[in-house]
């Protein structure tokens, strides 16, 4: 996996004008669903606004967005529905404030997940990124707030990062519309299968947990051969997540995850 090539013509008008049409709230028919995941205050809503042309409220404090918002855009004659989500620190918790985002990422089956991270605080943001990568095969890392990272004298090697994570990495400064065209191109490539990810799987899991997860996920796979992320289910079960257990019992989860 390599980083998205820098578009040679970021500035040329065709790039924006020809393929992209901001559709605002018109989300009636669409070919793909794109979800925006990320820690709070990393610029998800700003990215959302830049792509859909809407005016979701943004603000410089964590927790500005608390409900899910939808918008749409069209790129190369394909329609994409975009979903802006509240920020989350983790998919593993059961806290109520993060429920909206967690549920959508886990059960909403987005075609592509954009993980927006703060480039100057990459390490703490990776906590969520690595969890999202456990459950999806089609994701792109939006390395946002690059302008601030530069001011903090940080240099980020996006190629290495993309290789380590196994997904494309696009540096952006959403507030100044920098890198947004590349992001859209990458979304389209992922949605159409032109880029295939090999997402990073968490390595440093303690042995006893790993073996428990393996045991449980083999059992889950035996039971439900078509399930896409049995490992994640295993994590939830070990966490004692009652929601997942209930759905397993009723068989709903199986439908939703497929």
């Amino acid at each position: 996996m390599e980083a998205t090539p820098k578009s040679a013509c970021e500035a040329c008008p065709q790039f924006n004008a020809a393929g992209l049409k901001k559709l605002g709230v018109n989300t009636t028919e669409f070919d793909f669903v794109v979800a925006l995941a990320g820690n709070p205050n990393t610029g998800k809503s700003t990215v959302f606004n830049a792509i859909t042309g809407l005016r979701q409220h943004t603000g410089n404090w964590p927790g500005k967005t608390v409900t899910r918002a939808e918008g749409a855009f069209e790129y190369n004659e394909q329609k994409y529905k975009m979903v802006d989500l509240p920020g989350t620190y983790s998919l593993l918790s059961t806290s109520e404030d993060e429920e909206v985002a967690r549920n959508f990422l886990l059960f909403g089956q987005p075609s592509v997940t954009i993980i927006v991270v703060d480039a100057s605080r990459l390490e703490r943001n990776l906590n969520l990124v690595l969890q999202v990568l456990e459950i999806t095969d089609r994701a792109v890392l939006c390395l946002n707030l690059m302008d601030e990272a530069k001011r903090n004298n940080l240099e980020i090697d996006t190629r290495t990062l993309a290789r380590d994570l196994g997904i494309p990495v696009v540096p952006t400064s959403a507030r100044f519309n920098k890198g947004i065209p590349e992001l859209i191109q990458t979304i389209s490539d992922l949605a159409n299968g032109r880029i295939v990810c090999k997402p990073h799987r968490i390595k440093n899991i303690p042995k006893n947990i790993e073996s428990a997860v393996q045991k449980l996920s083999t059992e889950i796979e035996k039971e439900f051969p078509n399930i896409p992320n049995s490992r994640w289910l295993a994590f939830r079960l070990l966490e004692g997540d009652s929601h997942v257990i209930e759905m397993l019992r009723k068989g709903e989860l199986i439908e939703e995850l497929q």
Partner: peptide
Amino acid sequence: NLAEGIYADA
């Protein structure tokens, strides 16, 4: 343990 593991990867 899981959280520590993930942060170690990060």
